[in-house]
Each structure stands twice: as structure tokens, then as C-alpha cells.
């Protein structure tokens, strides 16, 4: 379980996070939503120790993040994390060189699933294919937790469908996934848990299926209510 406890973050004078708390379980897809600029990416960065927080605590399976933790939790930002001059194969080799948890077989499987080729240069990839390679580099690791920042944003519909397909496949099975998005419409049926952020705090956190069952509302309905207030 990933536990985010009362974290705060200031950028200059701007208080971006004002005490954010939520948990994300293994085997579930948790979705952080909020209109742009509410600090979703900052939360991801904070979980990965890529940006310092001012107060609060983040625990992964009850422990603070250490360097070894990067073998069991990984982050797929919205920009590719490899050098443009590398080929996809180079990037995979880089992962293999540094991570014990790199699963070359799974990576190869993803490569063919996405219909990509190892000798393609990263700088030549389309936006959609760049997103797929980014996903491949994250999913190729045998990690327990996977964080993704806006995996569906700004890419073509077919890439989007392929990426959504990955979520329901064995490639994500039993992992804990946190994704951020500002566009939940397409993925309402894919997620377990929704955490709505606004103005630096969690305004509502609920189970998507639960809110449909108990209140007869869609996730978007709940968002609409929250933002109307």
C-alpha cells in the first residue's frame, strides 16, 4: 500500500498541496483527478522523491522510499525518460543494465503488442509511440507499484485504446497503479478508486463501482458536484 499522509508543498509563495492524504492499494487502479494545476504531478514526484515536500509523510508498504525502492515502485512521467538519440533497444538495454527487476521477456512482449521495433530511434517516434515506449519502460519492470502521469493525454485515439488495453491485461495484473488524469471520461470503467483533488486538498475519495452502486452516479457526476460547490 502507498500511504500519502498530510503532505504539504509550497512553490515560492504558492501553497500547491495543503495536506493531501490518500492511500493506494496493490491490485487496484487509483486515479488522481482534478482540473489542471492542482498538484497531481507534484504528488507523483513527491512519492518518488523527485521533489521535496514541506511536511507530511509518504510510506510504501510501511517504509520510506529508499534507493532500493526504485526496484519495486516506478513512475512513468508524461515525457520520455530516455535520451532522444537512443533507439528503443538502447533504452531497454539501459533498463536491463541498471534494474534487477527488469523483465526483458515482458518488455519484448509489450514491444510486439505496441507494434514497435527495437531499432527505432526515440527522437523519430510519434507522440503516441513515445508514450508507448515510456509505458513499456515502466511496465517492463517487475514492480509492485506503477505511477503514471497523464498516460492518455495528447495522444491519438488508437494509441489511447492500446494503452487502455494494457490496463486490463495481465501486464498490469496485481500491481498497484496510480494514474493522474484530468479527463476521466474514457477510463471510468477501468479504475477502482478515485481521489478528487481541488485547491491543494483531497475533496473526495471513493470507490468508482461503489458510487455507481450506492448512489447511481457516474464518476463524472461526482466530479461535477464537487466542482460546482
Amino acid at each position: 500500500m502507498i500511504e500519502v499522509k498530510e503532505i504539504t508543498k509550497k512553490f515560492g509563495l504558492k501553497q500547491v498541496l495543503k495536506g493531501v492524504s490518500f492511500t493506494a492499494n496493490k491490485g487496484e487502479i487509483t486515479c488522481l483527478i482534478g482540473i489542471n494545476g492542482v498538484g497531481k504531478t507534484t504528488i507523483m514526484n513527491a512519492i518518488m522523491n523527485l521533489t521535496p515536500i514541506n511536511s507530511g509523510e509518504i510510506l510504501i508498504d510501511g517504509e520510506k522510499l529508499r534507493k532500493e525502492s526504485y526496484e519495486k515502485i516506478t513512475f512513468i512521467p508524461d515525457a520520455i525518460t530516455m535520451l532522444p538519440q537512443m533507439t528503443i533497444g538502447d533504452a531497454m538495454q539501459f533498463m536491463k543494465d541498471f534494474y534487477k527487476s527488469w523483465n526483458q521477456k515482458r518488455a519484448a512482449e509489450l514491444l510486439s503488442f505496441f507494434k514497435l521495433k527495437e531499432d527505432e530511434r526515440i527522437s523519430n517516434l510519434s507522440k503516441g509511440n513515445t508514450a508507448k515506449v515510456n509505458l513499456l519502460l515502466g511496465l517492463g519492470l517487475d514492480v509492485d507499484y506503477l505511477l503514471m502521469d497523464e498516460p492518455f493525454s495528447g495522444i491519438d485515439i488508437f494509441s489511447r485504446e492500446q494503452i487502455a488495453d494494457v490496463f486490463t491485461s495481465h501486464l498490469v495484473e496485481d500491481r498497484g497503479v496510480i494514474i493522474t488524469t484530468h479527463e476521466i471520461n474514457d477510463i471510468e470503467h477501468l479504475i477502482d478508486k478515485v481521489v478528487i483533488l481541488d485547491n491543494g486538498v483531497v475533496v473526495k475519495s471513493f470507490n468508482a463501482e461503489g458510487v455507481r452502486e450506492n448512489e447511481g452516479k457516474s464518476v463524472v457526476d461526482v466530479m461535477r458536484e464537487v466542482y460546482k460547490q
Partner: peptide, 15 residues
Amino acid sequence: GKNTFIYRLLMLPTA
């Protein structure tokens, strides 16, 4: 640049 390699470098399971 578009490719933020620093993410990768800081997320390596090494000091």
C-alpha cells in the same frame, strides 16, 4: 528538452 533524462537518473536503484 522534451526528454527529461533526469527522471531516469534519479530513479535508478543506486545511490
